[in-house]
Design a protein around this nucleic acid. Structure first.
Lengths: 349, 349
DNA sequence: TTGAAAGCGCTAACAT
DNA sequence: ATGTTAGCGCTTTCAA
């Protein structure tokens, strides 16, 4: 690495003069400055910014105004539409505040999450955004050395921490009611995943919360919960498609299916086509999330369209507030925000 | 800011002992270590990594044994299937080598890319993966302080740098030939984007390379290039759908459409449905990329299925080799690798 | 098992 | 106009 000392030696001046020249201080003789610039150029000198910050921590000079922060986002999957869209929107929201976002994939593994915090977030992020974390809030608190943190869709009752939630109960309830009011009476739910109980470790899980909404709808509408058909599947399109095949007889008994995510709905519609059922004539299909793809697909997807941009914006706003108020002067109480949604009424239901 | 000195004072030891405890060096008495940890916790101590790197620039010894590396991936969009899948696979490949991946979205903006390198990658990444970069290789080289870098899908002829490419020419040629050999004679191409020429600044652009493949196929098959219909559109599903509407008369003149990406094909199929054309009976549709969604959609998408996993694996392998051989002892020549593909023959063509 | 000293690259403050 | 000194928070080295 080429240092200012090296450049100084080449130009026959001290490192200090090099520093002055390179920062445009006008207390250097023009011809000296020219010599220094030539030397820097020749040696391919680059300012080492890390050493800069060591000083600027205390000094907080002009340079600190330009240097903005970094947000770490830990998300369970990068290659599914919902988390991908969320990550993209968060990245943009942060950018508008002058923050850079670094995204990391957890694959819903605790050890991955630990590694992310310890090896990356902890090293250089000013704040953390954790989507569907497996870690308890106090462990995050510990591992992250008390960095500002906002959780996404983690509704476990924990000690003070900010969290932003998708409207699981409300949305699921609205979906069932929508199907019912459009005249459907033999309703099925695709997406409970009892086989995969390792991921369902508490009743505050997204899955459970959506199920709770379904039950609430049934109670309200006077449907016996036992009459609802449940089609279990993992939360991917291919698994959902296979589930439709596997549970064909159950499916054929339904005139409407509520899928716990849009991705599941996507696979479900494909599965229905495979077994010769028409959407929405034979079976109405409804999703949950409101991913962009739902509008383009054939048939277009009626769904609980969560305001994903709102989630991104609020998460970033809140996190940046926490970052700027590290010492808790303002003592904003910890928030629990539930995002808005609307029913995107399209072709599939 | 709380420093090691502060923690040391609290625990009644020197800063050095604090450093040893916090890095897990086992040359500290257990009860002393415990006291130090308690003090650090109490004071909410945070390691200041900026000062770290100043030293480790030169030293890079023990840190590297225990701590594995970090790869920075800069990618143009997070919420489109192809880049999302690529990012996910790269992240997994890196994980298998014990590397953590941090993903950042460039939105194809030069200033974003600069900011990513300067503010993040440069600070703590051992190597960089740049997908469809707008920056010239030598600028990356400069900005990154000569960190190991592998480019993805950037075929500009540049001074020595590794690059991994999608098989644009070969794949596009194969697509046109496939359509021709299945009996289609009125072929259209969806996805040239002449309006958006700011992004087409050189003939080594992915767009141009795919077009080149199409021309090669025409030459080989004896089709006059002028007979090929071109439907311009931006590379998103919604834009493609609108393009179908806008160019309806051109479209109705076609019996086959080659779309420059799967996402475009997705929107195109929707657009065709809108104007009452059946896929594949009225119009065959073929895509390019091989994203997973293509298999599930209705109709399932015949496409040039690029071996995305291969791209991810090779990129990560190569980058890690470069990282481990920083001083160029082995002098592996710079690579230009073109990924494999196959034709995924499905319903749409 | 512990800590003192030196120094990483850079710059503010103070000489010369 | 130029250079010297000191010190940012941390770690390596080496002495106690």
């Amino acid at each position: 690495m080429v240092t200012m000392k090296d450049v100084g030696r080449e130009a026959g001046v001290s490192a200090m003069t090099v520093s002055n020249v390179l920062r445009g201080n006008n207390n250097v003789a023009p011809q000296t400055a020219e010599r220094v610039r030539a030397a820097a150029d020749k040696l391919h000198y680059r300012l080492n910014t890390t050493s800069l910050s060591a000083r600027s921590l205390r000094v907080s000079t002009s340079r600190n105004n330009t240097q903005r922060g970094t947000i770490g986002l830990a998300i369970f999957e990068l290659d599914r539409p919902y988390p991908a869209q969320l990550a993209s929107l968060i990245s943009q929201a942060a950018e508008e505040h002058g923050f850079q976002t670094v995204v990391q994939q957890t694959r819903i593994s605790e050890s991955n999450e630990r590694s992310i915090i310890e090896r990356v977030s902890n090293q250089f992020c000013d704040g953390l955004l954790f989507s569907s974390s497996r870690l308890a809030a106090d462990e995050i608190e510990q591992l992250s050395n008390h960095r500002p943190t906002v959780l996404l869709d983690d509704d476990r009752p924990q000690q003070d921490i900010d969290t932003i939630l998708t409207p699981c109960e409300q949305g699921a309830q609205a979906a069932i009611e929508y199907l019912y009011h459009s005249g459907r009476r033999r309703i099925g739910i695709v997406g409970e995943d009892l086989k995969n109980s390792e991921f369902v470790d508490n009743e505050h899980d997204v899955r459970h919360r959506r199920m709770t909404g379904c039950r609430a709808a049934c109670d309200k509408l006077g449907i016996r919960w036992g009459d609802i058909r449940i089609i279990p599947t993992q939360w991917t399109d291919t698994a959902a498609r296979e589930a439709v095949h596997e549970y064909e007889s159950t499916i054929r008994d339904c005139d409407a299916l509520f899928c716990m995510t849009d991705t599941i709905a996507f696979g479900t519609i494909r599965g229905l086509k495979d077994i010769g059922l028409d959407v929405p004539n034979d079976v109405a299909v409804m999703g949950f999330d409101g991913i962009e793809m739902g509008e383009t697909m054939v048939p277009s997807l009626t769904t609980i369209a969560v305001d994903i941009k709102q989630i991104a914006d609020k998460a970033v706003d809140l996190l940046i507030k926490r970052i700027n108020d590290q010492d808790g002067h303002e003592a904003l109480p910890h928030q629990r925000i539930v995002a808005d949604f609307h029913i995107a009424q399209r072709e599939s239901a």
